[in-house]
Simulated assay, not measured.
Amino acid sequence: MAEFVLVAGAWLGAWAWDDVVPALREAGHGAHPVTLSGLAERSGIPAGQQTHVQDIVDVVERADLRNVVMVGHSYSGIPVGQAAQRIGDRLHHAVFVDSNVPTDGESFTSVWSAAQVAELTERGFWPPLPAEDYAGQGLSDEQIARIVGSTPHPAASLTEPAKLNGPLEELPATYLKCLLDGDTPSPDVVKLLESDRWRLVEMETGHWPMFSQPAELARLLLEVA
């Protein structure tokens, strides 16, 4: 039996996995959707990126989980990649769902301009994108409205740099690329995929497959259990 630890991307909480969790549990596995500090029902809690890493590690350690499949979507690939290293032999596999991946000393906003980072830091949070930015991602109007109405994301978690314990390519990992959000992964992911411990799987959907194709996403997750 695998224990799935599921972490959604910016603005989202554990609720994002509501349509994926039942299939994992029905297959006999554990499923532990995570709400990171500062988001959803945990809004208002100050959170840097290392807070988010610890949030994920805490879920594993408090329940004494073993055979862990750690799943990170979008922004959360950055803290999930770090947490996957820190749980050691508890980890069975890491799955990055159309996500960023951590680079030691780099942050989510390392590719942003100085002006964008300054504006984000002054505001203190990153608001959800406007509804028109979700067009062409396979989402219903209701799903888009729910994302748009979710929690602003704490700025410090986006600007704080990652801290890796070793080469990320040594993790046993799958990268799920959602093709409606671009045909190929980012260059850092392409480099990681050169490792014989990483594999690429493509999905014919948009950047939020837990909403647009939850059954297919669950099926692909079960393949690595």
Rank of each mutant, 00 (worst) to 15 (best):
F4Q: 00
F4S: 08
V7F: 04
V7S: 03
A10E: 01
A10N: 04
W11A: 09
W11F: 13
L12F: 01
L12H: 04
L12A: 05
G13R: 03
A14W: 06
W15A: 12
A16T: 00
A16K: 02
D18F: 10
D19Y: 09
V21E: 01
P22A: 06
P22W: 07
L24C: 07
A27T: 03
G28T: 03
G30D: 02
H32C: 11
P33M: 10
T35C: 00
L36T: 01
L36E: 03
S37G: 02
G38W: 14
L39Q: 00
E41P: 08
A47Q: 04
Q49R: 09
Q49H: 13
Q50M: 09
T51Y: 05
H52M: 08
H52Y: 12
H52N: 08
Q54I: 03
D55L: 09
I56C: 01
I56R: 05
V59Y: 00
R62A: 14
L65Q: 02
R66T: 13
V71E: 06
S74A: 11
S74Q: 06
Y75P: 08
G77A: 14
P79K: 04
A83Q: 05
R86F: 14
I87W: 09
I87S: 03
H93V: 12
A94H: 08
V95K: 11
V97M: 06
D98E: 15
V101D: 07
G105F: 10
S107F: 03
F108T: 11
F108P: 06
S110R: 05
V111C: 15
Q116N: 14
E119M: 15
L120R: 03
T121I: 12
E122N: 14
F125Y: 12
F125K: 11
P128L: 12
A131V: 04
E132Q: 14
Q137Y: 04
L139K: 05
E142P: 07
I144H: 04
I144K: 10
A145M: 14
A145D: 15
R146H: 06
I147W: 01
G149M: 11
T151Y: 07
T151D: 07
P152T: 01
H153M: 11
P154R: 07
A155H: 03
A155D: 03
A155Q: 00
E160S: 09
E160P: 02
P161E: 08
A162S: 13
A162W: 01
G166W: 13
G166F: 07
G166L: 13
P167M: 01
E169N: 13
L171T: 05
L171G: 01
P172I: 01
Y175N: 04
G182K: 07
K191Y: 10
L193P: 01
E194I: 07
S195V: 06
E202I: 02
E202P: 01
G206W: 08
P209N: 09
S212D: 00
Q213D: 13
Q213I: 12
A215T: 10
L220G: 00
L220F: 14
E223G: 11
E223M: 11
A225I: 02
A225K: 05
